[in-house]
Design a protein around this nucleic acid. Sequence first.
DNA 1: TAAAACTAAACAAACGTTTAATTAATTTTT
DNA 2: AAAAATTAATTAAACGTTTGTTTAGTTTTA
Lengths: 215, 215
Amino acid sequence: MIETKTMEYNEKQVQIIETAERLFSAKGFEGTSVRDIAQEAGINIAMISYYFGSKEKLIEAIFDYRISYTRLTMLGLLQDESLSPTIKIEKIIDSYINKMMSNQCFYRLMSQERAILEVHNITELIYDSKSKNMDMVKKIIHEGQRTGEFRKNVDVSLLMATLIGTSNHFTVSQEFYRRYNNMKEMPEEEFQKHLKKKLGNHLKSIFKALLTNEA
Amino acid sequence: MIETKTMEYNEKQVQIIETAERLFSAKGFEGTSVRDIAQEAGINIAMISYYFGSKEKLIEAIFDYRISYTRLTMLGLLQDESLSPTIKIEKIIDSYINKMMSNQCFYRLMSQERAILEVHNITELIYDSKSKNMDMVKKIIHEGQRTGEFRKNVDVSLLMATLIGTSNHFTVSQEFYRRYNNMKEMPEEEFQKHLKKKLGNHLKSIFKALLTNEA
DNA sequence: TAAAACTAAACAAACGTTTAATTAATTTTT
DNA sequence: AAAAATTAATTAAACGTTTGTTTAGTTTTA
């Protein structure tokens, strides 16, 4: 149905992709000009059309680049028979948070694109990726229901909305969090670790409460 | 600190504001031209500069218009002495979901702006509004901790991130939800009611699990 | 020496904003 | 109450920039 291109990109193309990703996430797709990108990446404007065809195709390349790169890591989890569903869910939460925290530009960009209705040709790519993630989590939860670890009547859509929505909002609002909690002085790296830990524990306790059987 | 303008807008200005809000939310701020807005609102392009000064000031007017309009409703809750903290929290959840579901364009636009770093002059306005919401919820939770309804060690920042993040993500991804769960045939109004109910129950059970003392 | 990588310059189209003129509404003066 | 004066609302056209893309030529690589 969806032709997943998953192109190979050369060094220069990756350089352009990562520069564009950073600028798009900071100023928005329409708010960033190809001249901005060219200047920031230290290349000629024409190279963007030369390598990608258009600005539109460039953002598609960004999503192609990041999504194909991201999917691989999660798949290994499912096969591992030695892990209990509870542990698998915990690992998925950690894995998602790690991906998001170390690719904040991309997730910021994805948040923007999600919120825009008349969207670029990446809608199908995102839909496809979301479906696969949803299917995977569903499988694990069904597994947990079979073993008796998890309760019946779990709404996976809302569970995923909570994982993704809470994580995104918390990350994107980190400057508010810093100001509101008077943490201006904390070094950036330490602050990021703090966010990760807080967020991880929070989501795990939510998932535990929603998944496990009442005592 | 922040001069909350809370201007009065005449009929024509409101018409422009609401048209712009709809277009901005659908195509993004930079993706929408003043000509788009003028055409859709059935007015001359120059009227936008005439009434608001610039496109930039127009989006500020949108946020001024919506945020000042929104804040009033929540405040009444706090004063009501007859309601228990538990009920108050439930009412806040319902109130937030209702506001969001009946102003989807505005919340979509706010999601976009939140995700963009180099943002417009509305940052302070949003920060101010968020702080006030946070303070209010904090107050209610402290009240619940005094009465013994709520446990100690509640992270209000993460609680709010879950309320706002989950709600936004669920709403913004409603088309995915429709497709993934084969609900294409359900009438729009019924579908919206369905989302509201699902989301409300979900968030209430999360808040209950995170706030109340373990049995 | 052919293909690939790269460049400066030019392209038309679209952008937000302003101008100058006209119509509509309101206030002031008779 | 009518006429005049003043302000507000509205318009079409033009403004100078900036936009994404292309061209035609040059340099580099294989």
